[in-house]
Each structure stands twice: as structure tokens, then as C-alpha cells.
Design a protein around this nucleic acid. Structure first.
Lengths: 113, 113
DNA sequence: TTTCGTAGTCACTTTTTCGTAACTATACCA
DNA sequence: TGGTATAGTTACGAAAAAGTGACTACGAAA
């Protein structure tokens, strides 16, 4: 899912940037406020530590989120939306709304957001 | 990537519905006009026949596209957007625009749409 | 009778992604 | 000296997704 430098269709890049099982969800939990690693881990149901770090790394290297280390003891690390991330928020909301509509019309339960 | 009937977050359902490497791209090529299987195959670069049929089946079972068989010889099958698919079009365009902007600012080449 | 074209299916392999559990570094605190 | 907390890393294996190539059915045309 690493970003390449040429694509035949922009949606291929879209998928590499924010596709995958977890990225949209990670971004979702960063919309309201920046969060530390542990907070994200608690917020996102069922994500493993390994996958969370992997996905955060990819989002960071795509400049969609930022990572800031605070030299506390123990260290804390804060993840936040960058400008790219912010510009994505309306689209995420739209996707979310579309999906909620779909779910309600098809008797699919969504227990969280 | 099959759709379940309960989710903790709507974006999980989003991903099951239109995530994956190919679904957005398939939908993209159906936005302008409905297409036959072979036309889709030719339109979408590098997709294998197997994966195309699989993804079309999933999109059909999610009611995002429709499949119509014409009893010609040999049979032809036409795929088209349903109402759900249509309602997704503006979001696809937005994603596409966002991505093109991203690509242009990061020197990523997109040779097609 | 063989070949052609459409729209697949099937068996198999490779690649990618995901999950689990154990391990690390750091420094404070008891 | 051992325990605690944060934010990871690492090795390993399982599962899911994707790719490959051969195969099918149908009837029309050569």
C-alpha cells in the first residue's frame, strides 16, 4: 500500500493513500482532536498495536497526519491532522453520511459512530 | 471484504462496500455509461478477469451496481450504476479531485483520469 | 468440424495484509 | 531491586487478496 510515483488512474493513488482496512478509521478518530498513540489504540476497536503503528507511519509519510514526540517520561507521541488531513475531513464526513444512509436502509447495525 | 451486518464504526462498512484495490476504479468507469464486462476489462488497466468478476459480484450484491444479461450470441452482460451507485458519484468525484490536487503538489504522475 | 467471441469458472501460486505474543528503551517511584 | 507506563519493534504464522493459466458453455460462421 506504499505510494508509488505514477498511476494510471487517480483513484489508484486514492486507495494507496487512504484505502486499506484502517486508515479512514484512524483519520476519523483524529478529526476532533489530536490524539496520543495510546488514546488512538483505545479508541479504535480491535486494532492491533502493530497494525496501528504501521498505518500511522504510512499516513505520516503521506503527510496526511503529523507525529510529534514529547520528551516526557515515558515519552508521549501525539498524532494530528496536517493540512492534507484537514482537507480530507469533509470527504470523510460525506463518506460516513452516505454509509449511514446505506446502513439504515439495509438493516445493518452500526454500534459506534 | 464481504459486508457483515454489524459494525462498530460506519467507516468499517464503507471500506467493505467500496474499499479494496479495484472497486472505486470499477465504479469510475461506470460513471459515464454502463459497460459490458469486456469493455470494463479493457478500460481498467491491469485488472485480471478473476478479480474483475469477483469485485463486480460484490458490488452487485451490495446493490451499488446492477448486472443485466442480454441473451445475444454470445451472451453480453451489462453493468450499470444503481441508485446507490449514482448517489456515490459526487463522492467519487470529490475523492478524485482531492487526489489529483495531492498528486500535483507531490510530483506524482497520473497518466489516465 | 473447427474456430471465434463473450463472459465467465476453477485450481493453484504468490503476494499482501493482519494477528499474536514476546521483547525493548526510558526513567520515575516504591 | 522490581514494578509501572508509553510507544513502540520483532519474529512468526495465519488469513485474505490478487495473479496466472487453463478450462467451460453457447451458437454462429467459416
Amino acid at each position: 500500500m506504499a505510494v508509488k510515483n505514477n498511476y494510471v488512474c487517480s483513484l489508484g493513488l486514492t486507495i494507496d493513500l487512504i484505502g486499506g482496512k484502517w486508515k479512514l478509521m484512524i483519520l476519523w478518530y483524529l478529526i476532533e482532536e489530536s490524539k496520543r498513540f495510546g488514546e488512538l489504540k483505545k479508541s479504535i476497536p480491535n486494532i492491533s498495536q502493530k497494525v496501528l503503528t504501521e498505518q500511522l507511519k504510512e499516513l505520516e509519510s503521506s503527510q496526511i497526519i503529523s507525529r510529534k514526540v514529547y520528551p516526557t517520561v515515558p515519552v508521549t507521541v501525539e498524532y494530528a491532522m496536517t493540512a492534507y488531513g484537514e482537507s480530507l475531513i469533509p470527504l470523510i464526513h460525506d463518506l460516513c453520511d452516505w454509509t449511514k444512509q446505506y446502513a439504515s436502509e439495509n438493516d445493518i447495525e452500526i454500534s459506534g459512530d
